[in-house]
Simulated scan of single mutants.
Amino acid sequence: MRINNKYFVVALIAIIIIFTLTGCWDMVEIERNAFILGIGLDPSESKSGNDERIMVTYQIALPAAMLGPGGQGEGGGGQEQPSTLNVTIEAKNLMMAEQTLMATLNQLPNYDHLQLVVFGEELAKKGIGKYVDFFFRDPRMRQRTKVAVSRGKASEVFKIQPKTVKSTSQYISDLLDENEKRSLILLMPMDFGIMQRHFIRRLDVCLPGITVKKNTLTLQGAAIFSGDKLVAWLTGSQVMSLKWLHGEPAKGIIDISNDKVKAGNFVFNITDNKVSIKPVLDGNRFILKAKMEVEGDIAEIQNERFNTYDLGFIQQVEDLVKQKIMQSCSEVFSKLVDQYKTDCIEFGRRVQNYYPDFWEKNKDNWKEYFANTDLEMEVDVKLRRVGVIK
């Protein structure tokens, strides 16, 4: 049977039109979207029966203000018109908070540009497990969204308007991306993709800490978790050791104060370093063997007239930096093992890779093995440059 070409073409065009139209049935116009840039979670002071409620703060972009005068997106957030809107909602959980948000705004929540989720300190101490499930499960969530913990309330973080970017969420995300590799006091970022894998493996996590002081945001220190609960804070100087025990090389400075140094106090600037972490099973216990190679320059000394080309001084600098690294790493390791009993340096993951059979048999009792782990360090420090001043 012959098919009329005219009818065939008409039918083909009709089919194409049908598929084109059905592909856009659920499309939401861009101006109808509420682009959520950041989310903060705090415990609520009120309770409904026996249910604990939370305060969810949404930082929402205001597109017109984001673009700035004349539709230009350049420049910082110092304009008079705010570029973001913060909305705080009290609810039983995150899904109910979103439902309330939709009843509050004339726009549909959109998570395509979600940069940051901040857990308040008080909520983190109670446990974040039942709240992270929302971010793991919902397909709308970006797995690259960064996670942090605030000292104090998370809602206070989003009240700060940085001068260099349009939103607090983007500011913190950029800080972690741009400066973490150049500063030893900034913890490596954690996103929901990595965090989900940790929770599945039942590994502890450490998250960057955020502090609000006098209308200023500072990323410094680390929030240490055991399971899903915040158990301790590490200072900025301790983050240096935490990163190395984690096997993460980074650049930054080490400040040395010692009365025996004729040049006075000095600052050692790390220009390159390599870290190797290996678990060794010794009988019924593990040894964390860390090997570090550190190279750096003299960035600053107290006595600018001192002859920094003196070989004795160079050897002294290398020895003092080595001692400080070993002492700091030993102190932090001792806190994690003996005091906090939390494997936030992912040593268990390395044991799983090196000793898979042992891990399968003992993974449920890993915390007991971790509590008996010892640290052995081998550190080599080289001073490469002393500066141009003679």
Rank of each mutant, 00 (worst) to 15 (best):
96 M>P: 00
27 M>K: 15
173 S>P: 07
110 N>F: 14
75 G>H: 10
73 G>T: 12
45 E>Y: 08
85 L>N: 07
328 S>Y: 10
194 I>L: 10
32 R>M: 10
250 A>N: 03
328 S>P: 00
116 L>S: 04
279 P>F: 01
232 A>N: 07
265 N>D: 05
274 K>P: 03
328 S>M: 13
336 L>E: 01
72 Q>E: 09
72 Q>W: 08
126 K>P: 03
180 E>G: 05
74 E>A: 14
283 G>H: 09
389 I>T: 08
264 G>N: 02
307 N>F: 12
294 V>F: 08
260 K>N: 08
30 I>K: 14
234 L>H: 12
193 G>M: 15
160 I>R: 02
154 A>S: 10
45 E>P: 03
148 A>Q: 04
51 D>T: 14
99 Q>K: 14
130 K>R: 15
304 E>S: 11
114 L>R: 09
63 P>D: 02
282 D>Y: 05
125 K>H: 15
83 S>Q: 08
189 P>D: 09
45 E>C: 03
246 H>L: 15
147 V>W: 08
13 I>Y: 01
106 N>H: 14
68 G>R: 05
204 D>V: 10
114 L>N: 10
113 H>W: 13
40 G>K: 09
85 L>S: 06
282 D>P: 01
301 I>M: 09
205 V>F: 07
25 W>V: 07
86 N>S: 10
286 F>A: 01
382 K>W: 11
231 V>C: 06
335 K>S: 11
262 K>S: 13
219 L>N: 03
40 G>V: 09
383 L>Q: 07
150 S>W: 14
173 S>N: 13
4 N>C: 12
121 E>K: 07
13 I>V: 12
289 K>R: 07
34 A>L: 13
320 L>S: 03
182 R>W: 09
116 L>N: 02
326 M>P: 02
98 E>D: 04
123 L>P: 06
40 G>I: 06
313 F>Q: 04
97 A>G: 14
123 L>Y: 06
379 V>E: 03
329 C>A: 15
80 E>H: 10
2 R>Q: 12
117 V>M: 05
49 G>P: 00
77 G>R: 07
